[in-house]
């Protein structure tokens, strides 16, 4: 575990020093401030709409950060040849994959906390108080959802050498699942065979990222979701991430490094 943590620490340090997070944070901040300024007009519908826009931006930023940071990890190690010095040490290929995954995911978690904290501070100042449990559930489910894009991008980097192709494909897959995943089985009903069966299979195979999207809790100040559902969602994300990472390890474990 020490090795995995050491590698994760390395990833976090790199992300902090690369300053990618700051660019996304500045963008999100600007939009959140616009949302806060809209409260001047005291139109609750406009405020809700702008809250939704801000939270959507946080979700998009989360995807972008998770995918782009994970997609470049292994190619960058190979290109700079730091991978060779690292794997010449008692580091197994599984520990390497796990360390990269953990580092990216923890760094995304830190970024999310900053994003949500800023947005939360602005929202609380306008709405007199926060529903702490709802916010906790929204952040934690968002963070756990990111295990899937991070794992997908890491696995993708073993299939596509260029981080840009990998990032684009993974982002398309993630946005596709997030926005359209829930409708696939409905579309399948209207399709002829074998399209219907195939699409139904896809529906039951993909990780349903939209399950983790509980932004409405914050936007409409609804009560928290049942804790059993929350726990189930965490396990669901962990299971998918675990399966994808196992696939990545199977791809990587005997791959020659030259």
């Amino acid at each position: 575990m020490k090795t995995t943590l050491a590698l994760a620490h390395l990833v976090i340090l790199e992300m902090v020093r690369r300053k990618d997070v700051y660019v996304l944070f500045v963008l999100t901040t600007l939009l959140t401030l616009v949302a806060a300024a809209a409260n001047i007009f005291d139109d609750t519908r406009v405020v809700r709409y702008l809250k939704e826009v801000s939270l959507t931006l946080i979700w998009i930023s989360g995807f972008v950060l998770a995918v782009t940071s994970a997609a470049r990890q292994i190619p960058a190690e190979r290109e700079s040849r730091t991978l060779f010095t690292l794997l010449a040490k008692p580091v197994s290929r599984w520990q390497f994959i796990a360390g990269k995954f953990l580092g990216c995911w923890l760094a995304c978690g830190l970024a999310l906390v900053v994003f949500y904290a800023f947005f939360g501070a602005v929202a609380a100042s306008r709405e007199r108080g926060l529903d702490v449990l709802g916010w906790f559930q929204a952040i934690s489910m968002h963070w756990f959802m990111l295990t899937v894009p991070v794992a997908l991008a890491l696995a993708g980097s073993l299939l596509w050498a260029a981080p840009s192709s990998n990032s684009t494909l993974t982002l398309l897959a993630c946005f596709g699942i997030w926005l359209l995943g829930r409708h696939l089985h409905k579309v399948a009903v209207g399709l002829p065979e074998p399209g219907a069966t195939l699409l139904t299979l896809v529906y039951f195979t993909i990780p349903h990222l939209e399950l983790f999207d509980i932004r409405d809790l914050i936007i409409h100040r609804w009560p928290p979701v049942p804790w059993l559902f929350w726990l189930g969602a965490m396990l669901y994300a962990a299971a998918y991430a675990g399966m994808i990472l196992t696939g990545a390890w199977l791809l990587f474990r005997r791959r020659p490094l030259n």
Partner: peptide, 20 residues
């Protein structure tokens, strides 16, 4: 991996994490 616990390796080209 345990085989590498007691070894030190210096590659021909030394590239390390430039951000460290």
């Amino acid at each position: 991996p345990i085989a590498r616990r007691r070894i030190g390796y210096l590659p021909e080209m030394t590239y390390y994490y430039k951000f460290l």
